[in-house]
């Protein structure tokens, strides 16, 4: 009798909106929160714990080693040199931004077959990364008579009478890395073009009209109207470029496998964990990557909040003047 009485109000309560809110919240959030915990937060905590341990891929043979793993990272020249490689990609993404801005402003002017050009330049971004990497593996190959046919680039250059060049080789890590950066630009520049087109198109046409009345040339138009309006997006892109440069993985992993001094920090981390089976060391590397990314993200958040508040302030003062 007593239990029944206790149950009745609960049954009623669950039908009220208050009760519904409760059970809907629990039901709807149960799986997402569980997945978030198991596949994001538990591994994140594990990562920090493992970084002080020596352990293998399957979690056997665990021993504590203190900060030894971190010491290894900062003394191992092969790991440190991957940061140098990241600089190539960082320079590459600056060049990529310049190209994207140029093409985007061209595509926003009066041009025929805009959609076609836009589509062609964007399509590499949609292509499968492995396919892109294989295409460029073929592109940069230097042939050997009777064994390996000449690659695409050397074939093209031979038309102009240029001798075949060994593009990706251990002798010239600089050239090899430049080639890989080129692939990265080839693949991703289309996306930036679309981003910038969106930004440029959102500029009010009144401004252009005013500029035309004043007889501005295209460069002046870009300098005084387009550039100031899309500055926030450019700086966002540059910050994302830093994040991108530090976490390059797919293209060098498939084209060179990280050999010939073209490895990146992420390739090294993955190889350390899964080929060399040193999960402790790899976790320490992952922690360092995490710290770098968090610093960059915080900088991004800081600068962008600043920008936003400045804008708002400016708008307020302008309204005040009116």
């Amino acid at each position: 009798m007593k239990t029944k009485r206790k149950h009745a109000p609960f049954k009623k309560w669950i039908k009220t909106y208050e009760g519904q809110k409760f059970y809907i919240s629990v039901l709807f959030l149960l799986i997402p929160v569980l997945l978030l915990a198991v596949f994001t937060f538990v591994p994140a905590v594990n990562m920090i714990v493992y970084s002080f341990q020596d352990r293998d891929k399957y979690g056997a043979n665990v021993s504590w080693v203190g900060i030894q793993n971190y010491k290894t990272i900062f003394t191992d020249t092969s790991i440190l040199s991957t940061f140098k490689n990241s600089l190539y990609y960082l320079c590459g993404s600056f060049i990529q931004q310049v190209i994207a801005l140029l093409v985007a402003s061209i595509l926003c002017s009066k041009i025929r077959a805009k959609g076609l050009f836009k589509g062609i330049l964007f399509f590499p971004y949609l292509m499968n990364g492995v396919a892109v990497s294989i295409i460029f593996k073929k592109f940069f190959v230097k042939g050997e008579r009777g064994i390996v046919p000449e690659g695409t680039l050397n074939s093209v250059l031979s038309v102009f009478g240029i001798e075949p060049i060994k593009w990706i080789s251990a002798e010239s890590p600089l050239l090899a890395n430049i080639c890989l950066v080129f692939v990265s630009i080839w693949r991703y520049v289309g996306f930036d073009i679309i981003m910038y087109i969106g930004a440029i198109n959102s500029i009010s046409p009144d401004l252009y009209e005013a500029a035309d009345l004043d007889g501005a040339n295209p460069w002046q138009r870009f300098k005084y109207i387009v550039f100031p309006s899309i500055k926030p997006i450019i700086s966002l892109q540059l910050i994302l470029a830093v994040k991108g440069a530090i976490s390059v993985f797919e293209i060098p992993y498939i084209i060179t496998g990280g050999t010939m001094n073209t490895s990146t920090f992420v390739i090294d981390t993955i190889n350390t964990a899964f080929s060399k089976n040193k999960v402790g060391l790899a976790s320490a590397m992952a922690v360092i990557l995490l710290v770098i990314i968090i610093i960059v993200t915080l900088l991004q958040k800081y600068f962008f909040r600043e920008d936003g508040s400045k804008l708002r302030q400016r708008r307020k003062t302008r309204e005040g003047k009116r």
């Binding site: 929160v33 978030l36 596949f39 591994p43 594990n46 493992y50 976490s247 993955i270 964990a273 990314i293």
Partner: peptide
């Protein structure tokens, strides 16, 4: 919590996610 999770670089997290999967 979801906001915090966006900070974590997915790719290097797999070092420890792999253990959980296993």
């Amino acid at each position: 919590a979801f906001l915090l999770a966006t900070l974590l670089p997915n790719i290097s997290m797999q070092v420890t996610v792999f253990q959980i999967m296993y």
